[in-house]
Design a protein around this nucleic acid. Structure first.
Lengths: 335, 335
DNA sequence: GTCAGTCGTGAGAGCGCTCTCACAAAGGTC
DNA sequence: GACCTTTGTGAGAGCGCTCTCACGACTGAC
């Protein structure tokens, strides 16, 4: 017969012996349809295998339709860090009941920035969740200009308009970790920080400093890491060289902590007897090491769920306030 | 003035003093436009901040618009396994130059199957990449029914119509791993398999069996794992209980291998001196253990890129053949 | 000078849907 | 019985875009 063309609402209406308008009402659950008409349309839909055309629909009703998750990090980190999987899982689960789809925007900072900017500007998406933004990322200004509803996971370090965000209490996390080291008797406590262009890097360091200052201990053993395994190893080597007497380290991520521990053990020092160690994330990586890492919990998926919730509210036009989640120490064998 | 309504092609045309048709030609790079008209339209676009309406466009030109990545696995695995991040990275990079967006469909097998099915049937997406499908997954039949262009990563174990797929040579990988163990002198070689409802589980086991049979060694020390850390630990405990004399193990994933190694070491056995170990994936997890894992490479991102390539071809209506990528041993310190 | 062949352009149809509006039929109310 | 509601329905406009078709203005060949 006719060419293989998917059935339209018109076809459904014809088959059910009603008008297109009535068929549309049935599809959209409008109550003002007689029961007999509703049944006729319903079975016509079933017989024809009718599926509404999303494009045609959204041409008329301008409703949000998709949410982008923006991850602007080096490939290497995205590969290795379970943080990102947890993030996606959380967003996905919160979006489950909604008609919104989750579009993933991944890219290397330098290489893919232009492409990602183009995508954001092209209006393909109705809202954005920015995961792990660095200070000065150009995409943030794109977000400002386009006035796209945006929620950050991790407090954004941007001057200018305030963005909604969700974060864990990184500073308190740093305090908790360092307190554990102080309490178990460490007196020469170093830290490997995260990137200093991210709130997670800065705040965890501040927490470490808070506790040491409060305990009257020195705060000069600081090395910067980049949240990668390799960066953690290198930072640890620098620390051991500069402070061979250290007896405790707070490492701002588990991935770095695992690598740091290997470095410590490679010098013949025992963990935790000679050098105690506290990580951050309490991730799966923490349980792979021997001994398993003592680590500060980072409720990644919960942050993602909360961030998605905030974004949904923004899309409804509501006002939202930043949320900071509490944290706690997860016991392992390294401190 | 008028309500805040995004500018349309009509507005652009009016401002440039041409017809809508000509404006459309400029937007779509049609060569048959006089240079002066082209310039007028281009600057009108810039001045108005015009963005084409995607819905309106795709209502007319029925082109594919998005690709779904389907990951139907327990939360726990998605969280912990870097396999999935690598997957997404690969798909994302191959899609970079195309107008296709990547929609992520994540869900727990039992809990989210209905929702995911609804999504696939609703025609929101033009093609699907299925990551790590298990035998008998109901979503696979949905894919068959809807005739949605589909590519599997990992050979699908479905009867019925053949799907396109990309996989690593799992069987050869199993052989390579086991050969290493045999060559270093192991004589009592066990294996921890992947799930037996996945090709990766079955084929790696077959490879292990191939090599042992060829070497005249017994093939009875087999325990099944589920690709999770915990599953690996439990399988290793069962192996050690049943075969206390084992001196080599091929573990079908690094995550399981890391956990298995911890179990071995917990009994006082040394790795690799008392028990040698080869993992599979050569992932970041492999480098976290001490000693780092010797492991079979699993080119996750490359598979993702190839799978996306195949899907693009399917979307163009071309025929495609399955692809199986070669693999090799990555040196570590456990075998 | 006539005729065919470009070339650039605009009018207008139409993609599949929603939604307003008008209207007939049925049910109150006085 | 004349009047208003209420209820279910259909006709038709219109969302923003692409694309066909027709047409005027040039060209160049004879």
């Amino acid at each position: 017969m006719s060419a293989r063309r998917p059935p339209t609402l018109e076809d459904v209406a014809a088959r059910a012996g009603v008008s297109r308008a009535t068929a549309s009402r049935v599809v959209n659950d409008d109550p003002r349809v007689r029961e007999s008409a509703r049944e006729a349309v319903t079975s016509a839909i079933a017989e024809l295998g009718y599926l509404p055309n999303r494009a045609a629909r959204s041409l008329v009703v301008r409703e949000p339709d998709s949410v982008a998750v923006l991850i602007h990090e080096p490939d290497q980190r995205i590969f290795a860090d379970p943080f990102f999987s947890g993030m996606l899982r959380g967003v996905s689960s919160r979006l489950a009941g909604t008609p919104l789809q989750m579009v993933l925007l991944l890219g290397e900072p330098a290489r893919d920035a232009a492409r990602m900017e183009r995508y954001l500007r092209a209006g393909h998406t109705d809202g954005v969740i920015v995961v792990s933004a660095h200070r000065g990322d150009g995409l943030v200004s794109v977000l400002t200009e386009t006035r796209l509803p945006t929620v950050f996971v991790g407090r954004p370090l941007t001057e200018g308009p305030a963005f909604a965000y969700v974060d864990v209490d990184n500073r308190e996390g740093g305090r908790i970790a360092t307190r554990r080291l102080v309490e178990r008797g460490c007196r020469r406590i170093a830290t490997i920080t995260g990137p200093t262009d991210m709130a997670a890097g800065i705040d965890r360091l501040e927490g470490w400093r808070d506790t040491l200052t409060g305990a009257g201990l020195p705060t000069d053993a600081v090395e910067t890491g980049d949240f990668t395994s390799q960066g953690g190893a290198e930072a640890m080597r620098r620390l051991l060289a500069a402070h061979p007497d250290l007896d405790g380290v707070f490492v701002a991520s588990d991935l770095m902590a695992a690598a740091a521990m290997a470095e410590i053990q490679a010098t013949g020092r025992r963990v935790p007897e000679d050098v105690a160690l506290v990580g951050f994330d309490a991730s799966a990586a923490a349980s792979l090491t021997r001994p398993p890492l003592t680590s500060v919990e980072n409720p990644v998926s919960e942050m993602a769920v909360r961030a998605t919730e905030l974004l949904l509210r923004l899309l409804r036009g509501e006002e939202v306030a930043p949320e900071v989640l509490p944290t706690r120490l997860v016991e392992g064998g390294t401190a």
